[in-house]
Design a binder for these strands. Structure first.
Length: 504
RNA sequence: CGGGGCGUAGCGCAGUCUGGUAGCGCGACGGUUUUGGGUACCGUAGGUCGCGAGUUCGAAUCCCGCCGCCCCGACCA
C-alpha cells in the first residue's frame, strides 16, 4: 500500500473553518479502505460530505445496520457493556473478543483519530508494527520466560515460536537499533495504534477488559535522562489534551511501575463508580483544565510547568497512596473514589536499550544506550470508559468530540411529503456544513424513534413533524439536558454547526 | 487459578426435580389499526434443546465425558 501523506494533522487543510465529519476516513488506515467503492474525496479543498449526500449516500436508518436490543443481554453486568450491546455497537465472538459493528466502529475510529492528531501535534511519528511477533526478540530481552500465560504463544508451520504481541518494547527497540546511530537523530518518538492480545484469566466488562484490545503505544528514544524526562512530560500534556477532547476528565496519578518497570510512571484515571482502582485525590484536581491553551511541545520548561500544574495536587491510586499526605488535604477536598485506567506513561531508562544494544554515539563520540519510555492509551477501552462517565437510564450520552454522528434527524411522519422533504432538506443542509447526520426514516412511531435516539446517544436531535412544519419550525433537542427548543430548520442547522465548530 | 452459576428461536426466559412429539414475552416478517415518548389486534416464519457417548419402547429432562459463557475472589491496560 503506498504511503500517503497523513491528512489529519491539526494544522492541515482539514482544520479549516468547515468541519469535515468524514475526515476520519481520509487517512491511511490500519486495514483495508473501509469503503473501497467510494474513494475518499476529502484530501483537499473539496470537503466531501455534501458530495456524499449528492451521491445518494444518505445515512438512512432503513439502509444502515444498527441492530438495537430492547432488553439487556444477560451477560453484561456494567452499564457500558449493556449499552454497547443494546446500541448494536459490538458483538461478542469469544470471551473478551468482539466484533465492531458500524456504530461502534465509527466511535472507535473517531477516538483513534483524536489520538493520532494529538500525537502528531506533539511531534510523534506514526508507524505500524505487526500483531504477530517472533519469540526471538522476547528471548533477547529476557521477557519471553518472564511473561506468564497472559502471553498468547503461537507456533507456525516451521515450528518457530511466535506470539500475539501484548506490547511492543522489544520490537520498537529492534527497529531503532537497526537504523539509528547518532544523537543527531534524536529526540525521536515512534508510536502506533494496533491490536494487542493479553490472555486474561477472566475477561469481563465488555471492551473495558477484553483479551483483544486496540491500544496506542508510543516509545521515545533520547540521548540522556533529562531529554527522556522531557519526552515523558510531553506525553503527559498530549494525553491531557487527548482526553479533554473526548469529553473526559482523566486525572494523572502517580502509579506503581508494574511489570514494565522503571523509575517514573503516571496512570490516567477517569472517575467512575465501576472503576477497577480505588483512588485518593484532592477534589481541586478535577477543576484543572488544559483547554485550548497553546503549548510549545519543544519548550522543556513550558511543558514541565503544565505537568507541575496537573501533578502537584494529591492524586494517587491505592498502590502509591500515602495516608499522611492525604490527611494534609483540607477535609472538604479529600476524596476517595474509583477510577478506570485509560492510559499510562513510563520512563524506564535503558532497561531495553542496554540488553538489546540500542546505542547511539553522543556528542563526545561515546557509544551510549538510549534512554527510553513507553506511553499507552487504551483506545478500545476508552469507549467503555466514556460511556461509564456519560450516560443516563435511557442510554449513552456521547460527548460531541467522539459521537458516531453529530446529530440525528427524526421524521415523525414518514411518508408525509412535507415531513419527508423537510428531513431531506435538513440532511443536505447539515452535509453542507460538513456534518453527517443519521436520519431515522423508519416507519415507526415517535416513541420508538426517540427511544432509539436516546439509546445510541447522539448529542443532538432534530425532530420533524407535520404539526411543527405548519408553523415553520422543527425541534432541536439536547441529549444531555433533554431540553428542546423550536426553531426554523435553518436556525437548527446553524446552531448545530456552531456547536461542532468547537470540536473540529 | 480457587469458588459458584448458566447453556432451550435474534434477545430475555419457562419447561429439567417427577422422561411421553418444545412453550411464553420481546424482536423479525405480512396485514388491519394507530400516529408528537417503545399503540392495539390478526396472522407467518424461526429451535440438530451447547457437543459426544450411554440408559430407555421413548431423553431438553436421567447417567458419564467434553466444550463454551457468566459471576465472586486472586490478577491485569
Amino acid at each position: 500500500m503506498p504511503r500517503r501523506a497523513y491528512r489529519t494533522a491539526p494544522n492541515s487543510r482539514h482544520s479549516s473553518s468547515r468541519i469535515c465529519w468524514e475526515r476520519r476516513w481520509c487517512r491511511p488506515t490500519t486495514g483495508p479502505e473501509p469503503r473501497p467503492t467510494s474513494p475518499c474525496q476529502h484530501d483537499g479543498q473539496s470537503i466531501g460530505t455534501a458530495q456524499t449526500a449528492a451521491r445518494g449516500h444518505v445515512m438512512r436508518l432503513t439502509r444502515y445496520f444498527l441492530p438495537v436490543l430492547k432488553e439487556n443481554p444477560a451477560e453484561a453486568q456494567i452499564v457500558s457493556h449493556r449499552y454497547m450491546l443494546r446500541a448494536g455497537m459490538i458483538k461478542q465472538q469469544a470471551a473478551g473478543i468482539y466484533s465492531w459493528l458500524p456504530l461502534g466502529f465509527r466511535v472507535l475510529r473517531r477516538i483513534e483519530e483524536i489520538v493520532h492528531q494529538e500525537q502528531m501535534r506533539a511531534g510523534h511519528i506514526p508507524i505500524l508494527m505487526p500483531t504477530i511477533q517472533p519469540a526471538d526478540l522476547w528471548q533477547e530481552s529476557g521477557r519471553y520466560n518472564a511473561y506468564g500465560p497472559e502471553m498468547l504463544r503461537i507456533r507456525d508451520r516451521h515450528d518457530r515460536d511466535m506470539l500475539f504481541g501484548p506490547t511492543n518494547e522489544e520490537m520498537i527497540t529492534d527497529i531503532f537499533r537497526a537504523h539509528v546511530e547518532s544523537y543527531k537523530s534524536l529526540p525521536m518518538t515512534l508510536y502506533h495504534i494496533q491490536w494487542k492480545f493479553r490472555d486474561e484469566v477472566r475477561p469481563r466488562f465488555g471492551v473495558m477488559r477484553g483479551r483483544e484490545f486496540l491500544m496506542k503505544d508510543g516509545y521515545n528514544f533520547d540521548v540522556d535522562k533529562e531529554a527522556a524526562l522531557h519526552a515523558y512530560n510531553r506525553h503527559m500534556v498530549s494525553y491531557l489534551r487527548t482526553y479533554e477532547r473526548m469529553g473526559l476528565t482523566a486525572i494523572p496519578m502517580r502509579a506503581d511501575s508494574g511489570p514494565i518497570g522503571g523509575d517514573d510512571t503516571h496512570e490516567f484515571l477517569v472517575l467512575a463508580s465501576t472503576g477497577e482502582s480505588e483512588v485518593f485525590f484532592d477534589s481541586a484536581v478535577t477543576e484543572l483544565k488544559l483547554g485550548n491553551r497553546a503549548v510549545d511541545y519543544d519548550n522543556r520548561e513550558e511543558v514541565a510547568a503544565v505537568c507541575r500544574e496537573f501533578t502537584t495536587l494529591y492524586a494517587r491510586t491505592d498502590e502509591t497512596h500515602d495516608a499522611a499526605l492525604f490527611d494534609a488535604i483540607p477535609e472538604a477536598r479529600r476524596k476517595v473514589a474509583r477510577g478506570i485506567e485509560v492510559g499510562q506513561i513510563f520512563y524506564f531508562g535503558t532497561k531495553y536499550s542496554d540488553p538489546m544494544g540500542a546505542v547511539v554515539v553522543n556528542e563526545k563520540g561515546e557509544r551510549v544506550p538510549v534512554h527510553m519510555g513507553s506511553h499507552g492509551i487504551g483506545v478500545s477501552r476508552l469507549l467503555g470508559a466514556i460511556i461509564e462517565a456519560s450516560h443516563d437510564d435511557k442510554g449513552i450520552i456521547w460527548p460531541e468530540g467522539v459521537t458516531p454522528f453529530p446529530v440525528g434527524i427524526v421524521n415523525l411522519k414518514q411518508g408525509d411529503s412535507a415531513a419527508d422533504a423537510a428531513c431531506e432538506g435538513l440532511y443536505a443542509a447539515l452535509a453542507e456544513q460538513g456534518l453527517e447526520a443519521l436520519y431515522d426514516d423508519r416507519e415507526e412511531r415517535a416513541g420508538a424513534k426517540f427511544a432509539t435516539m436516546d439509546l445510541i446517544g447522539l448529542p443532538w436531535r432534530i425532530t420533524v413533524g407535520p404539526r411543527g412544519l405548519e408553523k415553520g419550525v422543527v425541534e432541536l433537542t439536547s441529549r444531555r439536558t433533554g431540553e428542546s427548543e423550536e426553531m426554523s430548520p435553518a436556525a437548527a442547522v446553524d446552531r448545530v454547526a456552531r456547536v461542532y465548530r468547537a470540536h473540529a
